[in-house]
Design a protein around this nucleic acid. Structure first.
Length: 923
RNA sequence: GCCCGGGUGGCGAAAUGGUAGACGCAGAGGACUUAAAAUCCUUUGGUAGUAAUACCGUGAGGGUUCGAGUCCCUCCCUGGGCACCA
C-alpha cells in the first residue's frame, strides 16, 4: 500500500478564506484509500447514518436485494455487483429527499448448511451465524449502507414464527394441502434426496440408483392463482424477458378437454357416431370405462390414430384386456418406474411404449382407436392422457413411425400434400399454426381457427367435453424431509386428523440436537426426536407433531414484508407500516430466480392481499436483473467409462487437482462464481489493493448493469487513477473555494470560461441523475470522467487568473461541490473525505443531490452534420438558435458539400434540428 | 425441441432511426526523474496516401427509409433457463 505524503488527519486545518498556498495541505501524491476509508465507515456507524427514517413530508423509497444465502465461501464480487448498484441508488434517493428503506437479511435455512453440519458433526445454527457475520463484515467493507437494525435471519424463531403463521393462513384458506407425491429415494442412505443430489439417476453421496417413493407431502395450491399471476404481470415494471418466462412457466393454454370411452375388446363392432347422430340415435353405450384428454388442437381430431396413457394412469388396471397384455403392460410400467424424470424426459430419446390391447371410441368418427402406454406422456400434466395426432405433432409422429401406426394428415398449408410428404421423408411432422382442414368430414375446407371454434361448440353441445383453459403450472411442493428448515405447524391427532398449531403456541421451534441421521423411513430427522414429535392436540390428547419442514422458498416469500416492521413481536407486521413501505420500489437480483422465487413471493402476497393482511397485490413494483460475474474454472476430459450429463462437455475439477494435471488435459471455462466451483473471488482482496470506492466504481463501470462480466482486476487501476484525479483537482481548487457560491454567482456577467465550467457542471448533473435512475451505472461513471476531463482543462486555463477573478472562483467552486456530491453515492468514502477537507460539515449523505438548470446546461453553439444522400461530407458549427433555413443555406454553401452537389438537382433537404442536414440530390 | 438474452476496435464498451467507436483498459511515442514508480501530454478501427482526403467497416444475406448498429424477414454463432407440457 503506497504511503500518502500528507493526510488530512494529521495536517492542521488551514484558514480557508486566506489560504492561497503553493502546496496543498490535503493533496496526496497518490490516491491512498487505505488512509481514510476505514475511518469513514466507523464514523457512519457511530452516526447511525443508514438507520431507516420514517419522517413525514418525505416520500418513501424501498430498495431491496435478493435475500442471500450465507455461504462459507464468503461474499463474492458477484454479490457485490448486486449490492453496490442498489446502494448507489439508495444513497442518491436519500440525498434527493426520500425516506429510504434498504435492509439486508439472510436466507439461512437450507440444504447446504444441513449437509455441511452433518459432515462436521456440528449444529448448523452457529455455523450460519458465523457465515452471516462474515457477509455483514464484507458488506460493510465495501461501504454498503444497510440498516442493520432491521436485519434478521430466516432461521430466527422470531421470524419463522410468522412464516408458520402465514402457513396457517394458507391452510385455513384451503391453500395448504397434503397429497401423495413421488420423491427421490436413496435406498442405501434411506433418505429422500433433493433433485440437486441426484446425478444421472444416482445418489450423489451413496452412489445408489435412485428410486421413486410415494409419500404424503404438503403442497401450496399456487395453481389457484394461475390466472391472476399472469394478469397482474401487466401492472408491474419488470424486464420483459422475466415476464415472458413467468407466463411460459404458468403456461396458460386454451383448448378442449373431452372424454374417450373405452370400447371393450378387439372384436367389438365399429360404430359410426356421425351416422348414428344423423339418424337421431343415442350415443352407443360402452363398458363404462373412459378417460379424459386435453388438447389445444381440437381441429386435428380427425387425425387421431391412437391414444396414449401415461404409464401411471389409473384406468390401466381396469382395461378389458388379456392376461398376456397385462403382463406386458406391467413390465413396461416397472421399466418406467425405475427411470428418473431426467431420463424420461431426456432429449432425442427414442420413443418407447406398449400397446394395451384396448381401444377407445373416437367421439366423432366412431372409429376404434388403439390405446397405448408411453412414458413421454406424464401423469402429472393435464389429464395424463393424450389424443395422438402423428400427422401434426412431432412426438406423436416419432412414436407412430416407430410402432407403425397410421399417420393421417388433416391440415394442409399453402404447399399442400407435397409439402407434408417432403417433410415426412425427412422424418418430420407438419406442425402448422394455421392451414386448411382436409380428411375431416364436413369440416373440410375450414381454417384451423374456424374448426377449433366449431368443434369446441360441438363437443359441448353433445356433452362429450368442454372448452377449457389449462395451465402448466403445478402446485408448489413445500415439504422437505429435512432438519434445517422451518417446521410445519401442524399436529396429527391419534384419530388421524390434522390440527393447525394455534398462534399462541407458535413458533414450533426446531429442537437443538446433535444428530441429523435420516429416519430410515423417508421422514425427517425430526421424527427421531421424541420430545419434538410427542405433543398434545387441542383437546389435550396425545398427538404426533408433523416432522416435515418447509423448503427455503417459503421463508423468502415474505421477508420483504418483515423488513417493514422487523421488531414486531405481536404480529408478523403492522399493517400501517406495510401500507407505508410496500411495494418494494426497486428489487434487484440475478435472473436465475426468474420463475421460482419471484413467482412464489407474488403468490404469497396475493394470498395475503385476499386475506386483507396487506394492501398490495404485487410485492415488487420494479425488478432489475444484474448480470453474472464469471470466473475461470478448470474442467477435464472424461476418463474412460465416465458418463457426462446432458449438455456437459467436461468434468469440473478443483484448483488443487488442476495444478497436478497437464495443461493439455484441462479446459478453462468462464462460469458463474460459486462455492461448488471453487472460483469465488471475494471483495476483500480488491479492497485491500485498490480500496472499496475503486471496487465499487469499477463494478458500476465495467459493463452495463444487466450484462455478464468476465472478472479480472485489470481496469480497477483506471478507476483508482480517476479517484486520485478528483483528490488532486479538489486540492488545487480548495484555496479558491467559495462556500457561498450559490447565492452570489452573477449568471449574466460570466466570461466564456466560467460559462463553460457551469455548462459542463449542469450537463453532468442532468446526465448522471438520468442515468442513475435508469440503471445506467456505467454511463453515469463515464459522465463523471468526462466532467473531470473538462474541468481539469478549464482549471489549467483558469490558473493564471483564478486567484483574482471572483466569477471563476465561484464557477469552479460549484463544479467541485457538484462533483463531490455526484460521486458520493458510488465513492462515498472519498467524497466524505474531500467534503471534510474542504471544510464542510457532516456527511455527503446528508447533503442535497444537485439539480440542474436547463438554461445553464444548454450549448450556445451546435455542430451540425451535413450529409449528401445520407453520406457525411462536412460538419458546420452554428449558434444554438440559428433558424432552420439559415442552417440549410450554410450547409449547402459548404465547399466540401458543393463537390458532391454541384451540377445536380437538389431533390429535397432533410433537417433534423440540432443534429444534421441531409441534402438529397439526383443521380 | 421449446422459451429468454447476446454478437460493435487488441480488450470492457457508447450511441431517442440521424456525425459509429463516447468513457476507460491495454499498446506506442514524449515530458518530468540519476533511474524507476507515480503523474502529465500526444497517439491508436481497417486499407491506400507525405498529406488533405477517399473507400471499407457494428455476425451473414435480403428488405423498409432521404438516412439502419438500431426497425422487418431469413440464416449463422453464442450465453442462460426448461418440466418431451400435448
Amino acid at each position: 500500500m503506497p504511503k500518502a505524503s500528507a493526510t488530512s488527519s494529521t495536517a492542521p486545518l488551514p484558514n480557508l478564506r486566506s489560504s492561497v498556498q503553493v502546496t496543498y495541505w490535503f493533496m496526496y501524491d497518490r490516491y491512498s484509500p487505505g488512509d481514510f476509508e476505514a475511518k469513514w465507515r466507523e464514523r457512519w456507524l457511530k452516526a447511525d447514518l443508514f438507520r431507516t427514517r420514517e419522517e413525514t413530508g418525505r416520500p418513501k423509497f424501498y430498495t431491496l436485494d435478493f435475500f442471500p444465502y450465507p455461504s462459507g465461501a464468503g461474499l463474492s464480487v458477484g454479490h457485490c455487483r448486486n449490492y453496490v448498484p442498489t446502494d448507489v441508488l439508495s444513497r442518491m434517493k436519500y440525498m434527493q429527499g426520500f425516506n429510504v428503506l434498504h435492509p439486508m437479511g439472510f436466507d439461512a435455512f437450507g440444504l447446504p448448511a444441513e449437509n455441511e453440519a452433518i459432515k462436521r458433526k456440528s449444529h448448523p445454527a452457529p455455523m450460519i451465524e458465523k457465515y452471516a457475520a462474515n457477509y455483514k463484515r464484507q458488506m460493510d467493507l465495501i461501504g454498503c449502507g444497510f440498516d442493520w437494525h432491521r436485519s434478521f435471519k430466516s432461521s430466527d424463531p422470531s421470524y419463522y414464527k410468522w412464516t408458520q403463521w402465514i402457513f396457517g393462513l394458507l391452510y385455513e384458506r384451503g391453500l395448504a394441502v397434503r397429497k401423495l407425491a413421488a420423491v427421490n429415494w436413496d435406498p442405501v442412505d434411506k433418505t429422500v434426496l433433493a433433485d440437486e443430489e441426484v446425478i444421472a439417476g444416482r445418489a450423489e453421496r451413496s452412489g445408489a440408483l435412485v428410486e421413486k417413493k410415494w409419500i404424503p407431502q404438503w403442497y401450496f395450491r399456487i395453481t389457484e392463482y394461475a390466472q391472476e399471476l399472469i394478469d397482474d404481470l401487466d401492472t408491474i415494471d419488470w424486464p420483459e424477458g422475466i415476464k415472458a418466462m413467468q407466463r411460459n412457466w404458468i403456461g396458460r393454454s386454451e383448448g378442449c378437454q373431452f372424454t374417450f370411452r373405452v370400447v371393450g375388446t378387439a372384436n367389438e363392432a365399429r360404430i359410426d357416431l356421425d351416422t348414428a347422430i344423423e339418424h337421431g340415435e343415442a350415443r352407443p353405450q360402452s363398458n363404462g370405462l373412459h378417460f379424459d384428454v386435453f388438447t389445444t388442437r381440437i381441429d386435428t381430431i380427425y387425425g387421431v390414430t391412437f391414444c396414449v396413457l401415461a404409464p401411471e394412469h389409473g384406468i390401466i388396471e381396469h382395461l378389458p384386456i388379456t392376461a398376456e397384455d397385462r403382463a406386458r403392460i406391467k413390465e413396461y410400467q416397472d421399466a418406467a418406474k425405475s427411470l428418473s424424470d431426467t431420463d424420461r424426459t431426456a432429449e432425442n430419446r427414442e420413443k418407447t411404449g406398449v400397446f394395451t390391447g384396448a381401444y377407445a371410441h373416437h367421439p366423432f368418427t366412431g372409429e376404434r382407436i388403439p390405446i397405448w402406454l408411453a412414458d413421454y406422456v406424464l401423469a402429472t400434466y393435464g389429464t395424463g392422457a393424450i389424443m395422438a395426432v402423428p400427422g401434426h405433432d412431432q412426438r406423436d409422429f416419432d412414436f407412430a413411425t416407430k410402432f407403425r401406426i397410421p399417420i393421417e394428415p388433416v391440415i394442409i398449408g399453402p404447399g399442400g400434400l407435397d409439402e407434408i410428404r417432403a417433410l415426412r421423408a425427412q422424418g418430420k411432422a407438419f406442425e402448422p399454426k394455421d392451414g386448411t382442414l382436409i380428411n375431416s368430414s364436413h369440416y373440410d375446407g375450414l381454417s384451423v381457427l374456424e374448426a377449433q371454434e366449431k368443434l369446441g361448440i360441438r363437443l359441448e353441445s353433445e356433452g362429450i367435453g368442454e372448452r377449457k383453459i389449462q395451465y402448466k403450472l403445478r402446485d408448489w411442493l413445500i415439504s422437505r424431509q429435512r432438519y434445517w428448515g422451518c417446521p410445519i405447524p401442524v399436529i396429527h391427532t391419534k384419530d388421524g386428523e390434522e390440527q393447525l398449531v394455534p398462534l399462541s403456541q407458535l413458533p414450533v421451534e426446531l429442537p437443538m440436537v446433535d444428530s441429523y441421521e435420516p429416519a430410515g423411513d423417508g421422514s425427517s430427522p425430526l421424527a427421531h426426536i421424541d420430545e419434538f414429535v410427542n405433543c398434545t392436540d387441542l383437546d389435550g390428547s396425545l398427538a404426533r407433531r408433523e416432522t416435515d419442514t418447509m423448503g427455503g422458498f417459503a421463508c423468502s416469500s415474505w421477508y420483504f414484508l418483515r423488513f417493514c416492521d422487523p421488531e414486531n413481536f405481536e404480529a408478523a407486521f403492522d399493517p400501517e407500516k406495510i401500507k407505508y413501505w410496500m411495494p418494494v420500489d426497486c428489487y434487484v437480483g440475478g435472473a436465475e430466480h426468474a420463475v421460482m422465487h419471484l413467482l412464489y413471493a407474488r403468490f404469497w402476497t396475493k394470498v395475503l392481499y385476499d386475506a386483507g393482511v396487506v394492501p398490495v397485490k404485487e410485492p415488487f413494483q420494479t425488478l432489475r436483473n444484474q448480470g453474472q460475474v464469471l470466473a475461470m474454472s478448470p474442467y477435464r476430459k472424461p476418463r474412460e467409462g465416465e458418463v457426462l450429463g446432458v449438455a456437459e462437455d467436461g468434468i469440473l475439477v478443483s484448483f488443487e487437482e488442476a495444478k497436478l494435471m497437464p495443461e493439455a488435459d484441462l479446459t478453462w471455462k468462464w462460469v458463474r462464481m460459486s462455492k461448488s466451483k471453487g472460483n469465488v473471488v471475494t471483495p476483500d482482496e480488491a479492497v485491500e489493493q485498490y480500496g472499496a470506492d475503486a471496487l465499487r466504481m469499477y463494478l458500476l463501470f465495467v459493463a452495463p448493469f444487466h450484462a455478464d462480466v468476465q472478472w479480472s482486476n485489470e481496469g480497477m487501476q483506471g478507476i483508482s487513477r480517476f479517484l486520485g484525479r478528483i483528490f488532486k483537482f479538489a486540492g488545487e481548487v480548495q484555496p479558491h473555494f467559495a462556500e457561498n457560491w450559490q447565492d452570489i454567482l452573477p449568471f449574466e456577467e460570466l466570461d466564456d470560461l466560467s460559462k463553460r465550467i457551469r455548462r459542463a457542471t449542469h450537463q453532468t448533473i442532468r446526465n448522471c441523475t438520468k442515468d442513475l435512475e435508469n440503471f445506467g451505472f456505467n454511463t453515469y461513471v463515464s459522465w463523471l470522467m468526462k466532467f473531470m476531463n473538462e474541468i481539469t482543462e478549464c482549471l489549467e486555463l483558469a490558473k493564471p487568473r483564478i486567484a483574482n477573478e471572483r466569477h471563476l472562483q465561484l464557477a469552479m467552486s460549484e463544479a467541485l461541490e457538484t462533483l463531490i456530491l455526484l460521486v458520493a453515492p458510488s465513492a462515498p468514502h472519498s467524497a466524505d473525505q474531500i467534503w471534510e477537507d474542504l471544510g464542510k460539515e457532516g456527511f455527503t449523505y446528508h447533503a442535497h443531490w444537485p439539480t440542474h438548470d436547463d438554461d445553464l446546461a444548454a450549448e450556445d453553439s451546435l455542430t451540425i452534420a451535413v450529409q449528401v444522400n445520407g453520406k457525411l461530407r462536412d460538419t458546420i458549427t452554428v449558434p444554438a438558435n440559428t433558424p432552420k433555413e439559415q442552417i440549410e443555406a450554410e450547409a449547402q454553401a459548404s465547399v466540401k458539400v458543393k463537390i458532391y452537389t454541384d451540377g445536380k438537382e437538389v431533390k429535397k433537404v432533410i433537417t433534423v434540428p440540432g443534429r444534421l442536414v441531409n441534402i438529397v440530390v439526383a443521380g
